[in-house]
């Protein structure tokens, strides 16, 4: 394993709804960051990104985002990715609402 490689998750937006989603180890797209596959190897990351990008009818704009392990699963490291796990801060809209209903 490459020690200098920062762990990643594959993330994208759903084509139809635009929702932020994460690629899981069992090839689902989850709304929940904790359920993402935490990828710790650069070559594997590129493979998973290609796999995601090929799903043209499911997601848009797949990319690799930095993440770190946490008690409940992967967590984002940058504030932009943290906001993407929730939704806007001015209203209880987006995933923060969808996931509690």
């Amino acid at each position: 394993m490459n020690r200098s490689f920062a762990p990643k998750v594959v993330t994208a937006n759903r084509l139809q709804e635009g929702d932020v989603v994460y690629l899981t180890a069992d090839d689902r797209w989850s709304l929940v960051h904790h359920e993402a596959e935490l990828i710790e190897d650069e070559a594997h990351a590129q493979m998973r990104l290609l796999h995601a990008a090929a799903q043209k009818l499911v997601v848009v704009g797949a990319y690799l985002a930095d993440a770190k392990p946490g008690p409940n699963g992967p967590e984002p490291t940058h504030f932009r990715e943290e906001f993407r796990t929730r939704g806007p801060s001015n209203y209880h809209h987006g995933k923060q609402a969808d996931l509690t209903t």
Binding site: N13, V20, P88
Partner: peptide, 13 residues
């Protein structure tokens, strides 16, 4: 879509 004002933003279109 951009010609029709439809963007893909952070959480949604």
């Amino acid at each position: 879509r951009l010609m029709n004002g439809l963007y893909l933003q952070l959480h949604a279109y």
